[in-house]
Nucleic acid binder design. Structure first.
Length: 271
DNA sequence: AGGTTGACCTGTCAGC
DNA sequence: TGCTGACAGGTCAACC
């Protein structure tokens, strides 16, 4: 369920709640996408020294340079709860502290919690090696897209989603960013000129930054760390609006499938 | 090397 | 009401 904004909002929610706390124990439910990678007991007594984000991965820093890599998959959400709160059938990770716990709720179990020690430094873990630039950092520029898309025949929608050029743009925000930039989602990534790449760069930043500001409320069933369900606002320009009138030109929004994922666009506004 | 496809797993909703 | 199929916010691994 989460794209970068939801992961970032989750980070902002849990960081103040667990930074500096000592882990008492780890409770695991059903298996997730990957195994933890160490004995849970190894984590007992370790201290959370900070919470970072890389793409859609949350990085819980531990003392001694180790890291717990947390991914929410398609259906994951993280909450801070009272220590005695009993787990439900889809609660597959509890990091238990003295008075509270951090819980991963993930019905589809595409998420993961992975222990990484310093042996994978500086990448933290091999899963993070091929990730592209952070879109909300100064590293991200129109040049990032120019270099990354150069010579690539894949559609710009799929290139955005792939995450090897720029991270964090998921299926919803890819459609939204392309609409904002006026670019047709089927356009070959390598055939977009500098001026349009500049528009796309600005659109990606705008869409993601705005979603973070709104607290990730753009996703239907996103649950923040404090348990609040962000009010889902029908703020999408195109996503999920097949057949409905474009908010700009009133032409009907189109729906296509690219790489087995839904794409929405306005054929009149996007070329 | 880049592009394409299948796989992972469960809940929800539309249609019959 | 119950069954079936399509679909859902991610992304890796295996194939061409």
């Amino acid at each position: 369920m989460p794209e970068l904004p939801e992961v970032e909002v989750t980070r902002l929610g849990i960081a103040p709640a667990i930074t500096g706390l000592r882990l008492q124990r780890v409770r695991l439910g059903k298996p997730l996408r990957w195994p933890l990678g160490c004995a849970p007991e190894l984590l007992h007594g370790r201290v959370i020294t900070g919470v970072r984000r890389r793409g859609k991965y949350l990085l819980l820093d531990l003392d001694q340079g180790a890291v717990l890599v947390l991914h929410l998959g398609m259906s994951g959400s993280v909450r801070i709860l009272d220590k005695d709160n009993p787990p439900g059938p889809h609660d597959h990770v509890d990091l238990v502290f003295a008075d509270r716990l951090l819980r991963l709720h993930d019905p589809r179990r595409f998420g993961a919690l992975i222990y990484a020690d310093s042996s994978d430094a500086p990448h933290v873990h091999k899963l993070l090696v091929k990730l592209g630039v952070e879109p909300l950092s100064e590293q991200f520029s129109p040049q990032t897209l120019k270099t990354g898309f150069q010579g690539r025949s894949v559609s710009v929608k799929q290139a955005l989603l792939a995450g090897d050029v720029v991270v964090g743009v998921g299926n919803i925000y890819a459609s939204e960013a392309l609409f904002l930039a006026g670019i047709h989602p089927k356009t070959a990534a390598g055939r977009i000129g500098p001026a349009r790449l500049a528009k796309l760069h600005a659109a990606v930043v705008q869409v993601l930054a705005q979603a973070v500001e709104k607290g990730g409320s753009s996703l239907r069933d996103f649950v923040a760390a404090d348990g609040s369900h962000g009010h889902f606002q029908l703020s999408a320009q195109v996503y999920g609006r097949a057949g409905q009138p474009c908010r700009v030109c009133h032409a009907p929004i189109k729906h296509i499938v690219q790489g087995q994922r839904s794409t929405y666009y306005c054929a009149q506004c996007q070329h």
